[in-house]
């Protein structure tokens, strides 16, 4: 899975601060009796771009879905922006409105126009006046380079365009953290680049990002940390250069040889 060449990017803005954005400690999760996530420890600082890789079924999606509680964890602690995720619904809604999420299958609302998709949550969750929400939405639609599609319905757009709308929709909530769950896996090769470009420009602005992806070119260009997961555990993590050139764990070596080998 080689990424279409990503242009060298400006890393000057991409400062990692000491402030902790996400703190996961000793987190465990089971589906019934199946132990999907085992003793996950992860600290994400503000401004970090983390790429999470691993074979399918390794628990990477489940892990980032735990961060905004689309999945529930059964043991351990997850603290997002200083708020602990528990069964308290208020905390959950607070964290969800601070954390943006982009899905593999976009999950745009097909009964609403692109603009309505982008203004729905700001209007109803943030209680922002409609006019203002629309202005913000247009700003972000311009940023993902599709302002002219604002009054169309998602079904009229290509996959790449839909995914860019999904990114804009998340950004309209002004999130402090963005989660990407295989954002390019459902796209045609021609459309992958346009989505990755959008993600790169987001990274350049200093957004804290966690991306589950198979786009290793993106990882090399943008990430400041690559995490490799297998069998529900974090097996190895390192800076991208070291990770790709000098993998330590047997499982990592095998994985890299398989995805970069052809």
């Amino acid at each position: 899975m080689n990424t279409p060449a990503t242009a060298p990017i400006d890393r000057s803005q991409m400062q990692v601060s000491d402030e902790v954005a996400i703190q996961i400690s000793n987190m465990n999760k089971w589906y019934g009796t199946f132990h999907v996530l085992r003793d996950i420890d992860l600290t994400v600082h503000r401004g970090e771009r983390i790429v999470i890789a691993g074979p399918s079924g390794s628990g990477k999606s489940t892990m980032i879905r735990c961060i905004n509680r689309l999945e529930e964890h059964q043991a351990g602690k997850i603290i997002v922006d200083g708020t602990e995720l528990g069964s308290d619904l208020k905390n959950i809604d607070k964290i969800r409105s601070e954390v943006g999420m982009v899905f593999q299958h976009f999950n745009l609302f097909p009964h609403l126009t692109i603009l309505e998709n982008c203004t729905l949550a700001p209007i109803w969750v943030r209680k922002i006046p409609k006019k203002e929400a629309e202005a913000t939405a247009m700003h972000f639609l311009e940023k993902v380079k599709i302002p002219e599609q604002a009054n169309k319905y998602p079904g009229q757009l290509s996959g790449g365009q839909q995914q860019r709308v999904a990114i804009a929709r998340s950004l309209c909530m002004k999130p402090r953290i963005m989660l990407f769950d295989e954002p390019t896996s459902a796209l045609d090769p021609e459309m992958i680049k346009e989505v990755l470009d959008t993600m790169v420009s987001l990274a350049e602005e200093g957004m804290t990002m966690l991306c589950v992806t198979h786009e290793m070119g993106f990882a090399q260009a943008v990430a400041n940390r690559v995490i490799f997961m297998d069998a529900g555990q974090i097996v190895e993590q390192n800076e991208p250069k070291e990770f790709f050139n000098n993998p330590q764990h047997e499982r990592t070596k095998l994985f890299l040889s398989q995805i970069l080998g052809h």
């Binding site: 905004n68 689309l70 619904l89 809604d93 607070k94 969800r96 409105s97 954390v99 943006g100 999420m101 899905f103 299958h105 999950n107 745009l108 609302f109 729905l120 949550a121 109803w124 969750v125 929709r169 998340s170 909530m173």
Partner: peptide, 20 residues
Amino acid sequence: GQYEAGDALGLDYWKSMRLV
């Protein structure tokens, strides 16, 4: 995914039901 997208945007149960 529609339910999840509503949740991920921070819509509570009733808003997510009514709007999405």
